[in-house]
Amino acid sequence: MQYTISLTNTVVTVAFEGNLQAIDLIVMNQDPHYREAIIGKKVIFLDFSSVSGSELTVEDTQGLMLLGKLDSQKAKNMQLVILVTPGGARGIKNLCENIFSDSSWHVTLCESRAEALKLL
């Protein structure tokens, strides 16, 4: 899997390509460029729409969400917009709502680029 990080004044965009594995997302979360990029921004946009496959288990997804929640303790009042492939938001939506419910972050899952771009 590959990812690219791009920045505007208020938005950090992370676009993913290829086969998604848990270790790749852990490495991205620890990437100093990513860590520095989220400080002072208002929106994180995670674009998974170009992912060709995934080896994530339900447990991987839960663990990665909890890892992401640690960021919500450092970067307050962020909007996290997650773009997934059509049909990919079903189980993840409930998981996001449960994990981030007591944080200052607002999480929105989108299944279309147009929907996600409206939020940015």
Score class of each variant (00 low, 15 high):
99 I>F: 02
92 I>Q: 10
106 H>D: 11
39 I>K: 09
91 G>H: 12
86 P>R: 10
9 N>V: 09
41 K>Q: 10
8 T>G: 01
76 K>I: 09
1 M>Q: 06
92 I>E: 11
17 E>A: 14
18 G>Q: 07
75 A>S: 14
98 N>L: 13
96 C>D: 11
72 S>Q: 11
63 G>S: 10
58 V>R: 11
36 E>P: 10
102 D>E: 13
15 A>N: 06
118 K>A: 13
28 M>I: 04
26 I>P: 00
97 E>A: 14
19 N>I: 15
52 S>W: 08
3 Y>I: 08
18 G>R: 03
88 G>P: 04
90 R>E: 09
8 T>H: 03
110 C>R: 06
116 A>F: 08
17 E>T: 15
112 S>I: 13
100 F>D: 02
84 V>G: 02
54 S>I: 06
86 P>H: 10
75 A>Q: 12
76 K>D: 09
103 S>Y: 00
46 L>R: 04
38 I>H: 04
85 T>M: 14
70 L>D: 14
17 E>Q: 15
94 N>W: 03
66 L>I: 08
95 L>G: 11
98 N>D: 07
84 V>C: 00
62 Q>F: 11
23 I>G: 07
95 L>H: 08
3 Y>H: 11
120 L>G: 00
48 F>M: 07
82 I>D: 03
64 L>R: 00
57 T>C: 01
92 I>A: 10
65 M>D: 02
11 V>Q: 00
114 A>C: 04
38 I>R: 10
24 D>C: 01
32 P>L: 06
109 L>F: 00
38 I>A: 03
102 D>G: 02
53 G>P: 05
73 Q>F: 15
28 M>D: 01
103 S>L: 01
80 L>A: 08
48 F>W: 13
31 D>R: 01
26 I>W: 05
82 I>M: 09
14 V>H: 09
19 N>V: 15
78 M>Q: 15
101 S>N: 08
65 M>G: 05
35 R>G: 06
79 Q>F: 04
109 L>R: 04
9 N>H: 12
105 W>H: 03
32 P>N: 05
59 E>H: 08
94 N>F: 07
98 N>G: 05
84 V>K: 06
101 S>M: 06
108 T>L: 08
59 E>A: 12
43 V>T: 14
